[in-house]
Design a protein around this nucleic acid. Sequence first.
DNA 1: GATAGCTTTTGACATAGCTCAAACATGGTT
DNA 2: AACCATGTTTGAGCTATGTCAAAAGCTATC
Lengths: 239, 239
Amino acid sequence: MKNIFSFPPRAQTSCSACNLRKNCLPAGIAEGDIAQLEALTHVKRTFRRGDYLFHSGSPLRALYAVRSGFFKTHVLHANGHEQVTGFQMAGEIMGMDAISTDIHTCSAVALEDSEVCELPFGKLEELGRKLPTLQRHLHRIMSSEIVRDHGTMLLLGSMHAEERLAAFLLNLSQRFAARGYSPSAFQLRMTRQEIGNYLGMKLETVSRTLSRFQKAGLISVRNKAVEILDANNLRSFFA
Amino acid sequence: MKNIFSFPPRAQTSCSACNLRKNCLPAGIAEGDIAQLEALTHVKRTFRRGDYLFHSGSPLRALYAVRSGFFKTHVLHANGHEQVTGFQMAGEIMGMDAISTDIHTCSAVALEDSEVCELPFGKLEELGRKLPTLQRHLHRIMSSEIVRDHGTMLLLGSMHAEERLAAFLLNLSQRFAARGYSPSAFQLRMTRQEIGNYLGMKLETVSRTLSRFQKAGLISVRNKAVEILDANNLRSFFA
DNA sequence: GATAGCTTTTGACATAGCTCAAACATGGTT
DNA sequence: AACCATGTTTGAGCTATGTCAAAAGCTATC
């Protein structure tokens, strides 16, 4: 399952031709300036399921935009416990944790075969000084991660299992929708274990809660295939 | 307790003469460039306990550096629940949540009488384009908040009450130490309620756990006065 | 310096979610 | 096609933490 090549395949990328333009870093950047961003996004790397994009402790080289596929990021605690800090899908940016000290503080793993665009951070900062819209957008993206993390803290700090899982499913739904996929039927790319870890609950509780949602007619689950049948009532769990 | 003046007192500030230089935004910025940062940090505002620095929903005007005193930030959920997302002390920056959408997503309240330096964000970005070290430092500060939030997610997602509280006390201790105060004896500025909210537990559990730590000889608590008696064993709770 | 309203502590009891365990399903590999 | 490792479901009993309640301690204001 691990990629045995130390240097995954690379290829040229084009932001202007990319269908993720509206979800990714170029969002909100003037047409004419995208070429400059593209010039530094020189490589696209591919990953097999289970491959690491970066490890906690490794030096910052670049930010990474998911081109296709699915990743999870997790931090490792001294006591050996691992906490999933997020799941990233197409257009989402990883690696901002490393800007603080130039060392990654979390690790990123592909949950399925995936492609990633590499944005060398030094060059990104440099270009940001020339293009205010790019600078602004980079700031927005970092701030979004802060806001998202605050939301997760709210979830972990004050919600019950049912509320957490409802919020999780609706969040996935909404993100799939934003990418043009069905908001109501999708495949989970992560295990119950990983969902539970992210949501601060045990895999058995995830499984039981999904079963309960299914019995209540809110969703249908069969392994990784989820269908949201009653988004409104699901939403009412935590609204 | 609320400040009845709609415009809190203002005063000129000086970064170069500020004893927080090493903990605050100017950290790592070339001596010669600090004057330029100072030029835009035009006002220092004072707050009474309970005063709001900004509210969730209000527009981004500036980032705020705590000059003196203590703040908490919290997000509000649709269901009325409030989650404390952090406690900020001298030198720490608030307001980065608003960069994403130009609207604050959390609120900041003074926990004691406090002073704050205002950094108009537009001007900060503008200056960042001229001073790479400032740009870099702003990025580092935003990234640090991401890393900190990941740490809180780990705490909320996987630690027991004792571990959370031990981590919390040691974190405060370390931050006081970084500011030249005693790492072993300090005053809590927040209530058990607020601690519990931040740590995802009820105030009774906070109180009981503190009592247990005290009985075990790890700390001494009398209301808000805390003394850490055995930092090593306290650390062993969650290391 | 008395009063009123918070805040904290502690106890007794309730419960959501954890642990352990067993059976079953799935999908990748030989 | 069969096998094995991995993931999922469900049950039964347990425990950490929440809930409710009462008393005592602070602090701020008049």
